[in-house]
């Protein structure tokens, strides 16, 4: 029996496929409206700030700040139950997007994360895309 794998995003969903395609090159991209400058995340085809804006893709510097987090100690998911305890977090990227991800590479996951902690992306490579996980930085 093969070991359970992390659930991976569809690379074919219409709104998000460009985001995941960019992760192959380890780029975290997001959208901004050329007209009203609204930052859009998760990705969409339309601007939520104005009705005729055209969105352009921009690249994040890959760094952000922990907005909130939890240490998951119980999961029945076939992959994640073998990862406990692990850290899930809402991370505010420097450019605005707030993303849900994991903070990894911690010796003791319940003691080393705090709100306000600076983090940077550590890409987890898969065949068709990469997953933006995060590690702490000073």
């Amino acid at each position: 029996m093969s070991e359970a794998k992390r659930p991976l995003p569809s690379a074919k969903e219409h709104d998000t496929q460009a985001f995941w395609a960019a992760t192959r090159n380890k780029e975290f991209i997001y959208q901004q409206c050329k007209a009203c400058h609204t930052v859009i995340f998760y990705p969409r085809r339309h601007c939520t700030g104005c009705t005729d804006g055209e969105l352009e893709w921009k690249q994040s510097n890959g760094q952000g700040t922990v907005y909130s987090f939890s240490v998951v100690r119980q999961s029945y998911h076939p992959f994640f139950r073998n990862q406990v305890p692990y850290v899930v977090a809402w991370i505010d990227m420097d450019e605005g997007p707030r993303i849900l991800s994991n903070i990894v590479g911690l010796a003791a996951s319940d003691k080393e994360v705090s709100i306000g902690q600076r983090v940077t992306i550590e890409w987890e490579e898969h065949e068709a895309l990469s997953i933006p996980l995060f590690v702490t930085i000073d």
């Binding site: 992390r6 659930p7 991976l8 995003p9 569809s10 969903e13 709104d15 998000t16 985001f19 995941w20 998760y42 990705p43 969409r44 909130s68 987090f69 939890s70 998951v72 119980q74 999961s75 998911h77 992959f79 994640f80 990862q83 692990y86 899930v88 977090a89 809402w90 993303i99 849900l100 991800s101 994991n102 997953i131």
Partner: peptide, 19 residues
Amino acid sequence: PADVMETFAGATLISNYAM
């Protein structure tokens, strides 16, 4: 799209509230 962007993180329902 929200599922596509978030499922990989393995946030349980309880951890959603815990945050």
